[in-house]
Design a protein around this nucleic acid. Structure first.
Lengths: 224, 224
DNA sequence: TAGATTGTTAATCGATTAACAATC
DNA sequence: TAGATTGTTAATCGATTAACAATC
């Protein structure tokens, strides 16, 4: 699989392709052209073909793409078949919601273990995932390969925990705290889920819409 | 405030500026230059000045930006001072986590009401927010202006609920289901929180990193 | 005043779109 | 074969960066 400096925009579109292909497969669609896929995703056929061509040749002239084959290629590009292992740190509201609702294995990730400080839940097993004491985290990291640490601790605990993770060689942090963890020189990959950023962007668009409506109303008023 | 077609990239950076300025203010910093802000955010000073200039002139030559004033300008641009109202639909894991942890009012949004189908919680009040029956949703929408509907229902319920929201003129949906709600011609603004997309992007970067390491190791092997 | 830093115009860079030969 | 659709090269468009006059 070729992969010569793929742009961030392309990478961010890959999961959407995957979801759409999943849906197509579930609907019994076996082939699709870049034109049709573009229609369904609101992208140009050109862009779709360019995106795929970063990684290889998955289509066939005159035919299009085999849905199942393309899906499996993209899954592989995204690393879903590599058996990445994850741990969850912080079983509060969000952590609990993830353990309960979010099916890591659907995306090729094995959630091996969770850590928390609440005595009441330490030692229990939730949805097949054992919850351990935070005190054991460092020892765990020394003994086990952890590809992805899901960070769902309260703000106050975030920085020291992130530093421990980085110092113990955890490859990547999936960050649910509202803090900017991205250190300039850190070797750790950080992916943020910033709820507030998302809500504020939405808020911006709503405000813009309101302003447009108000402007239209004002123009109508002026005209008579 | 001028606002002539601002690019999506700019809009997505605004919440980050806001968070950084909040932190600077909290740390007692009263002025900052685009150079220094750029250093702290990993952006070029040019880009920062370009971004701000989409909305007006907030700085002063030879001085830079007043942190408090700039923060409040950006808050206003993002619509934080408009008193947008929100409702939450679906008080499951995620919905509950949002009610418990996520401070809507910090971002200028008033969470007025929540809706669910579970009799046990209908009629209760959580964190000051009343939980009502889903049966009352339509009537509520007819009687109250709702700017933002937070959609946190199970997959199965998502589409019909989204259609109800759109038909009742809800301006925007903050979508926590893993479904693509964006309808080609819908007037409703949709902002997605797709956990799986985020995790898969992260997985991609980890896979890429692994490949690079493997390639380095292979080269070293060959040489020595 | 001299130094610093803005806002903006121009230059560069990168991403998207269009076009088309290759080919199933 | 004729029609369809790919993968890729070239053209366009937009976003980022650089430069600089304006000015605090």
């Amino acid at each position: 699989m070729k992969r010569g400096k793929v742009s961030n925009n392309v990478i961010r579109r890959l999961p959407r392709y995957l979801r759409k292909l999943d849906a197509l497969e579930a609907a019994g669609v076996s082939r699709i052209s870049s034109f049709e896929l573009g229609q369904q995703l609101g992208l140009t056929p050109s862009q779709i073909r360019q995106d795929f061509s970063c990684f290889g040749e998955f289509g066939q002239q005159g035919y299009g793409y085999n849905v199942t084959a393309l899906r499996s290629q993209i899954a592989s590009i995204l690393g879903m078949d590599r058996g990445f292992s994850a741990i969850l740190i912080g079983v509060g509201n969000i952590g609990h919601a993830l353990m309960d609702n979010f099916c890591f294995s659907d995306w090729g990730v094995k959630l091996a273990c969770a850590f928390d400080i609440k005595p009441a839940i330490i030692g229990t097993v939730f949805n097949g995932v054992p919850i351990r004491s935070m005190d054991e985290l460092e020892a765990y990291l020394k003994e086990n390969r952890v590809d992805i640490a899901v960070l769902a601790v309260p703000k106050e605990a975030a920085i020291p925990v992130a530093e421990l993770l980085t110092s113990q060689g955890v490859e990547a942090i999936w960050n649910f705290t509202n803090l900017e963890l991205t250190e300039p020189n850190s070797p750790t990959i950080v992916e943020n889920i910033h709820f507030s950023d998302s809500l504020l962007s939405l808020s911006y668009f709503v405000a813009e819409r309101h302003d447009e409506k108000a402007a239209r109303a004002a123009r109508a008023e002026k005209q008579g």
